[in-house]
Simulated assay, not measured.
Amino acid sequence: MQSVLIIRSSAANAFADMRAIYSWRLWVFGWLGRMLAQVTFFTFLGRAVGDDERTAYLVVGNAVMTCVLECVQVVASTGWERISGTLILLAAAPARPVWVFFGRSLQWPVSGSATSLVALFALGPAFGITWRPHHILPVAALVVLTAFTTYCLGLFLAALVLNANGLRNIVSSAAYFVMMAVCGVQVPVDHWPLPVRTAAALLPLTHSLAAIRLVEADAGAFPIAAAAGKALLCGAVWLAAAYLVFESFMDRGRRTGNSDYF
């Protein structure tokens, strides 16, 4: 399938970028250490004002949130193509731009999944969470689902700001903090009024995080699958939206011949 070949070829650049940014030592002792410290900070903060149940809630939410932090970096890294001057070449290529950009920053959901899994399975037991053997595969699958569905949302945001490169870091940070606030990371979604809960339901993290919490609580397979299905649907919708915005961006540039687009 052509789209798979495009993603695979583009992903080669993504992982070359990753190797240039991080050595394994820098990733483990720099990035991963920073993320574990962040999870520990929010968990201790919650422990100071809550009980063991609240502590467990916070460690799961913030451990999953570490993967979201990496995945929304696609907003910034997509802008690297504009800085590099390659957009005009992409406009001339027959490939659909969404698949090029999907592969181009694929290092973020892969690295983010690894970060979250270490945080969940290494820090979780230290704060009283008991992971049983039958939890491991479902939690791992749901973390990967969280990463890729959030990545699809990030691609949509990246497409929106591709022609406003100065906003890329602002938008990625705003998206991260909004999801941290309303998706059930720090407080339950039900804490918010109906309009906020409705908006949160459009974000894949709300549903995938709920599914992870259901696994941790040993809920039945049906509610877990239902929550995961909602996350997958949200991710697919955001990817479709990203497809349309990328196509519109490239079409405008080709039609006008305006170098400002590229």
Rank of each mutant, 00 (worst) to 15 (best):
S3F: 13
S3Y: 11
A11I: 12
A11P: 11
A11L: 14
N13S: 15
M18S: 15
S23D: 05
S23N: 09
S23H: 04
R25L: 15
V28L: 15
G30L: 08
W31P: 07
G33V: 10
R34L: 15
L36H: 07
A37Q: 02
Q38S: 12
F41G: 05
R47I: 09
V49W: 10
D52Y: 00
D52L: 13
T55I: 12
L58E: 10
A63Q: 05
V64D: 04
M65P: 05
V72Q: 09
V75M: 03
S77V: 10
G79V: 00
W80L: 13
R82N: 12
I83D: 13
I88Q: 14
I88V: 14
L89H: 12
L89A: 11
A91T: 07
A91Y: 13
A92L: 09
A93H: 10
A93E: 10
P94L: 01
A95D: 15
P97D: 03
V98K: 04
W99R: 00
F102A: 14
F102Q: 05
G103F: 05
Q107D: 09
V110R: 03
S113R: 04
L117S: 06
V118E: 13
V118T: 14
A119S: 11
G124D: 07
P125I: 08
P125S: 04
A126E: 09
A126P: 06
F127V: 10
F127I: 09
I129G: 06
I129S: 01
R132I: 14
R132N: 14
H134C: 01
V139W: 02
V139G: 03
V144Q: 04
V144S: 02
T146A: 02
A147T: 01
F148T: 00
C152Q: 06
G154K: 06
A159I: 06
L160W: 10
V161Q: 04
L162Q: 11
L162K: 03
N163W: 11
A164S: 12
R168Q: 11
R168E: 08
N169A: 14
I170N: 06
S173M: 07
A175T: 06
V178Q: 04
M179Y: 09
M179L: 14
M180I: 08
M180K: 10
V182S: 11
C183I: 09
G184Y: 03
V185L: 06
V187D: 05
H191N: 12
P195L: 07
V196P: 08
T198P: 05
A199S: 05
A201P: 08
L202P: 06
L203H: 09
I212Y: 01
I212V: 09
R213Y: 02
A217K: 08
A217D: 10
A219Q: 04
G220Y: 00
P223I: 03
I224A: 05
A225E: 00
A231S: 08
C234P: 04
V237M: 05
L239R: 02
A241E: 03
A242L: 06
L244H: 09
L244T: 06
F246V: 03
F249R: 12
F249Q: 02
F249I: 11
F249A: 08
F249S: 05
D251H: 12
D251P: 08
G253E: 08
G253M: 15
T256V: 10
T256E: 13
S259H: 14
Y261V: 11
Y261M: 07
